[in-house]
């Protein structure tokens, strides 16, 4: 990789780091809004690292596919587990409330 490409990627990463810290301190988008902003910036940083530092743009397609499949696996795992837990969480809350009530008596 050429020196400008290396330094350019690095400067981009630093800029995005400054941006995400800046947004954290300076902009209030609500809990979820700030989380989304932070994640979008983090994903931009990750893409820079993957594309240039890890030279996925110049590399064999297959290596990218491995990485994409792994990301897919993580997303699958988190989303399904998250969906289920958030579905049964009200039952857990209910049970805890009942227990607390019973304890008061």
């Amino acid at each position: 990789m050429s020196i400008p490409a290396l330094l350019g990627t690095f400067m981009g990463l630093i800029f995005l780091t400054a941006l995400t810290v800046g947004v954290h301190y300076g902009v209030d988008l609500g809990g979820k809004g700030n989380l989304i902003a932070a994640m979008v910036i983090a994903t931009m940083k990750a893409s820079l690292v993957l594309a240039f530092f890890m030279h996925l743009v110049f590399d064999k397609r297959y290596n990218f596919m491995i990485f994409a499949t792994s990301v897919l696996g993580v997303v699958l795992f988190i989303s399904i587990a998250f969906t289920d837990v958030s579905q049964y969480e009200p039952m857990v809350q209910q049970r805890q409330a009942d227990l607390a009530k019973a304890a008061e008596k």
Binding site: G73, L76, I80, T83, D84, Q87, Y88, M91
Partner: peptide, 18 residues
Amino acid sequence: GFLVWGHHMFTSGQSKLA
């Protein structure tokens, strides 16, 4: 095979949807 793990958890307290 990656999409079916919850069939071990039908009676564990897993939600109906899952």
